[in-house]
């Protein structure tokens, strides 16, 4: 009798312990999940920014712009055929 009620109490305690840890784990899971969500969102944003920067870069290095800057700001020009020298090894 005594032993039986002891087992009952023990099982009740274990049950409560399991339930509490379940709730705790569930909470933990949700928190971690929220974290992955925000990281994934960050990844999307970074990807989008990368693409934007790539576009910006390709606009900056476009042949049109380089030619314009070289000609107008740096006063460069293509050498005339007569100005080209070939070195023979």
């Amino acid at each position: 009798m005594n032993m039986q009620s002891g087992i009952t109490v023990l099982l009740a305690c274990v049950l409560i312990g399991v339930l509490v840890s379940y709730v705790y784990k569930q909470n933990e899971t949700r928190k971690l999940f929220a974290q992955t969500q925000s990281i994934e969102k960050e990844k999307l944003e970074l990807n989008a920014e990368y693409a934007r920067l790539q576009i910006e870069k390709s606009t900056l290095v476009s042949n049109n712009r380089i030619e314009q800057v070289a000609r107008e700001q740096l006063n460069m020009k293509l050498p005339e055929d007569e100005q080209v020298l070939v070195i023979v090894r």
């Binding site: 999307l44 990807n47 989008a48 693409a51 934007r52 790539q54 576009i55 390709s58 290095v61």
Partner: peptide
């Protein structure tokens, strides 16, 4: 490796 067509979000 210069991009010629790319997608942005």
């Amino acid at each position: 490796g210069e991009p010629l067509a790319l997608s942005t979000a």
